[in-house]
Simulated scan of single mutants.
Amino acid sequence: MGCTAEGLATALRAAAGVVAEHRAELIELDRAIGDADHGENLHRGFTAILAALDAGTPATPGAVAKLAATTLISKVGGAAGPLYGTAFLRAATKIGDAGELDVPLLVEALKAALEGVQARGKAVEGDATMVDALLPAVAAAEAAADGGADPAAVLTAAADAADKGAESTVDLVARKGRASYLGERAVGHLDPGARSTALLLRAFAEAAR
């Protein structure tokens, strides 16, 4: 059984709740190594996604993902809007007109999201960015899918890997974004983008259950 448009809308609503809950945490993480706007920007973006969904849920999962993408790109400043917007847009393109998001398509959508983030942000593993959470998440999702997992289990595996990947940024010297200006002084700080990536994947996993 896969995820319908309504299911993806429910997952986005759950993600909006998690972003609201962790808004202050993300602001403080960004204050330490950035410009303290990550939590507020994401909160603004997902609040706008809620409003768009309240106006009517699109008919297909791909259309729901595209709605999220265009909303984030148009409403969110800083790096979060373009990066997350691109992630959702690439995922939407991969999903296409499918009426349901099954496991193979879910994994392909996650891979497309990662590719979009890397194309937009030019970050690789070890740069202390959201890629350090998203890359292992996609690998874990692929492994879970190969093992016959259902969508909820695939997303849970992704979320678990993203948590560990985000934690790994504490020990890294940032090579992208504002944190890169700090050099060695950025070591010891959790990357806010990696943290928000892990939070969103966890919200999606919980919603899928």
Score class of each variant (00 low, 15 high):
Thr129Ser: 15
Arg185Tyr: 07
Val76Ala: 01
Phe46Leu: 14
Leu89Glu: 12
His189Met: 05
Ile49Cys: 08
Tyr84Asn: 00
Ala162Trp: 09
Ala16Asn: 13
Glu115Cys: 10
Ala205Glu: 07
Thr93Met: 01
Leu155Phe: 06
Gly147Ala: 11
Glu108Ile: 07
Gly96Val: 14
Ala52Asp: 02
Leu101Tyr: 07
Ala36Arg: 11
Leu114Arg: 12
Gly99Phe: 09
Glu142Trp: 04
Gly77Leu: 00
Arg185Trp: 01
Ile27Pro: 00
Phe88His: 04
Ala153Ile: 15
Arg13Lys: 13
Glu108Met: 11
Val107Ile: 09
Glu25Ile: 04
Val19Ser: 01
Lys75His: 07
Leu134Asn: 03
Arg178Pro: 13
Glu142Asn: 05
Ala141His: 13
Gly81Pro: 02
Ala98Trp: 01
Gly121Ala: 05
Ser168Asn: 15
Pro104Ser: 10
Pro136Tyr: 04
Arg44Lys: 10
Asp30Leu: 02
Leu199Ser: 04
Asp146Arg: 15
Thr93Phe: 10
Ala208Phe: 08
Val173Arg: 11
Thr197Leu: 00
Ala5Arg: 04
Leu134Ile: 01
Leu200Phe: 02
Glu21Ile: 05
Pro58Lys: 03
Leu106Gln: 05
Arg13His: 05
Arg23Leu: 12
Gly85Trp: 00
His189Tyr: 03
Leu83Asn: 08
Arg178Cys: 12
Ala24Glu: 14
Ala24Gly: 03
Leu42Phe: 14
Ala162Asp: 06
Ala207Met: 09
Asp132Glu: 05
Thr4Ser: 14
Ala207His: 03
Thr60Pro: 01
Leu199Cys: 06
Ala51Pro: 00
Leu53Glu: 05
Arg195Gln: 13
Gly188Leu: 08
His38Cys: 13
Ala153Met: 12
Ala203Gln: 14
Ser168His: 13
Lys94Val: 09
Val131Met: 12
Ser196Met: 04
Ala144Tyr: 15
Glu115Pro: 06
His38Thr: 10
Glu40Thr: 12
